[in-house]
Amino acid sequence: MTLTYRSPTASDILHVAENMRQEDILEVAASHGHTPLQALAFAVTASDRSFAAMHDGSPVCIFGFSQHAEGIASVWLLGTDALVAPTFCRTFLREA
């Protein structure tokens, strides 16, 4: 299993938003009242760095961080159901 990482594109954001895990959809709705697309667009824009984890040309998840002060940052990740498949999950956890 090979995952590659890159800066997320608009099409990556749209793909993850349209295929977001139900748990992530509920989380962004409860925490900020956002749709999946609003949540991803905001998170990527507000982050110091963000990444799309790619497999076979499709994003599995998008994640990133925002630094608040020296040594203090918030991290986030929103993903598709593919992310929690055992083969992806093990690879992503090992690499991340």
Rank of each mutant, 00 (worst) to 15 (best):
M1C: 15
M1W: 09
T2L: 12
L3T: 05
T4L: 14
Y5V: 13
Y5S: 06
R6M: 02
R6I: 02
S7L: 02
T9Y: 00
A10P: 00
S11R: 11
I13M: 01
L14G: 13
H15R: 07
H15T: 14
H15P: 03
V16Q: 01
N19A: 04
M20N: 04
E23H: 14
I25P: 03
I25Q: 07
E27P: 05
A29I: 09
A29L: 11
A30K: 15
A30P: 08
S31P: 14
H32F: 14
H32M: 12
H32R: 14
G33S: 10
G33Y: 01
P36G: 00
L37G: 03
L37F: 11
Q38H: 14
Q38I: 08
Q38A: 08
A39V: 12
A39K: 04
A39Y: 06
F42G: 09
F42T: 14
A43G: 06
V44F: 01
V44D: 03
T45G: 02
A46Y: 02
D48E: 06
D48Y: 04
D48V: 05
R49S: 02
S50P: 05
F51D: 03
F51A: 00
A52R: 03
A52W: 00
A53D: 01
A53K: 04
M54G: 05
D56C: 10
G57A: 03
G57R: 00
S58P: 11
P59S: 09
P59V: 02
V60C: 12
V60R: 04
V60S: 07
C61I: 08
C61R: 01
C61S: 07
C61W: 03
C61E: 01
C61Q: 02
F63N: 01
F63Q: 04
F65P: 00
F65T: 12
S66W: 15
H68D: 13
A69D: 11
A69T: 15
E70S: 10
E70I: 11
E70A: 15
I72W: 14
I72Q: 11
A73N: 09
A73Y: 09
S74R: 09
S74K: 13
V75R: 15
V75C: 08
V75L: 10
W76Y: 08
W76M: 06
W76S: 03
W76N: 00
L77D: 04
L77Q: 07
T80V: 13
A82Q: 12
L83E: 00
L83Y: 03
L83M: 07
V84K: 11
A85M: 07
A85G: 09
P86F: 08
P86W: 07
T87D: 10
T87W: 10
T87E: 15
C89S: 15
C89Y: 15
C89R: 14
R90V: 02
R90P: 06
T91S: 08
F92G: 00
R94Q: 13
R94I: 11
R94H: 11
A96S: 12
A96K: 04
